[in-house]
């Protein structure tokens, strides 16, 4: 559906994006992550048709932003980085006028507006001027504008920038609700925001794509081992000894209270030892009250992929 082949964008002599290649389908929430200056915003602008690429190919449902500019842009809902809007307008005016710019007939505009107001939670401020709204509500207006034409693709540049945790969570929930039947591309430098929202991450560094995968796939690419933590009622030494004998387990640490032993198992990357541990517990007559996989935080994974400390 979205195909990007060797997309390159230069500003003067400097490459903001170099040979970016990927494809994506509807239903995906694609996260463009990376440090400042890695080319996220440039990529978002290229995908939205705001900028033209220096070289490379980009298409949406077979439409090119150069050859079929109007049809291409009609497929996209775009929220720029600062969620700009005409501040002197009321929310209702802004949305109605934007619908007209999108070429929507009045009847459909009204229906769509009703829908986006509900999705973005804008009903309380329908008659308020945009310049009087809080940052969070202005961001919602931007999101509503991007969503108004019910686009097949949404490109959101830093949708939670400058928002407090509660507002960020509201925006994230809204994005998740919009996932059905469309492709959403989110450019963000806040990796923690991408986690739990994005189904797939493209990690950019100095304009190049350094990693592409789901958050779990990216985790598996960093570090040689994974960690499983369990709380088991049993003899501490026996737990240590038996767990060490499990297949793929490379190291065992025990601690915790006298009765409940907290055991941390480091096992080889890409293996799942939970079933083996359960079978062992049944065989030995142990009780397990907690079992969880310790996953390294995504920011640390991304830092590791970018060449920083894991």
């Amino acid at each position: 559906m979205m195909t990007v082949v060797q997309l390159t964008r230069r500003f003067g002599g400097r490459s903001a994006i170099q040979d970016l290649t990927f494809s994506a389908c509807e239903g995906e929430i694609l996260g463009l992550v990376g440090p400042n200056g890695s080319g996220k915003t440039t990529t978002a602008r290229l995908l939205a048709g705001v900028l033209e690429p220096t070289s490379g190919h980009l298409s949406l449902y077979g439409r090119s932003p150069l050859r079929d500019a109007i049809e291409y842009r009609a497929l996209i809902g775009y929220l720029p980085e600062t969620a700009p809007a005409w501040g002197e307008l009321r929310v209702r005016e802004q949305l109605m006028q934007w619908a007209a710019i999108q070429g929507m007939p009045l009847r459909r505009s009204l229906l769509q507006m009703e829908w986006v107001l509900g999705v973005c939670g804008l009903e309380p401020c329908l008659e308020r001027r945009i310049e009087t709204l809080s940052r969070g509500y202005r961001q919602r207006v931007g999101l509503a504008m991007a969503l108004l034409s019910n686009p097949k693709v949404m490109i959101l540049d830093e949708p939670t920038a400058g928002l407090d945790p509660l507002q960020s969570e509201t925006i994230r929930e809204t994005i998740l609700r919009l996932r059905q039947g469309r492709l959403i591309v989110i450019a963000t430098h806040r990796v923690e925001d991408a986690e739990g929202v994005c189904t797939r991450l493209l990690v950019l560094h100095q304009g190049r794509l350094v990693a592409d995968g789901t958050p779990d796939e990216l985790r598996r690419r960093t570090g040689k081992t994974e960690t499983l933590t369990a709380e088991i009622r049993g003899c501490r030494e026996l737990v240590r000894e038996r767990c060490r004998s499990l297949l793929f387990v490379e190291a065992v640490e025990v601690g915790g209270e006298e009765e409940w032993v907290r055991v941390t198992l480091r096992h080889r990357r890409g293996t799942d030892i939970r079933a083996d541990l359960f079978r062992l517990a049944v065989r030995e007559g142990w009780e397990i009250r907690e079992l969880r996989e310790e996953r390294p935080p995504l920011p640390r994974v991304i830092a590791s992929l970018l060449g920083g400390s894991p």
């Binding site: 602008r45 939205a48 048709g49 705001v50 500019a69 109007i70 049809e71 842009r73 009609a74 996209i76 775009y78 720029p80 700009p84 809007a85 710019i101 999108q102 070429g103 504008m145």
Partner: peptide, 9 residues
């Protein structure tokens, strides 16, 4: 930027 992304020539 909104204008440039809109389906307007």
């Amino acid at each position: 930027e909104l204008w440039l992304a809109a389906p307007v020539r």
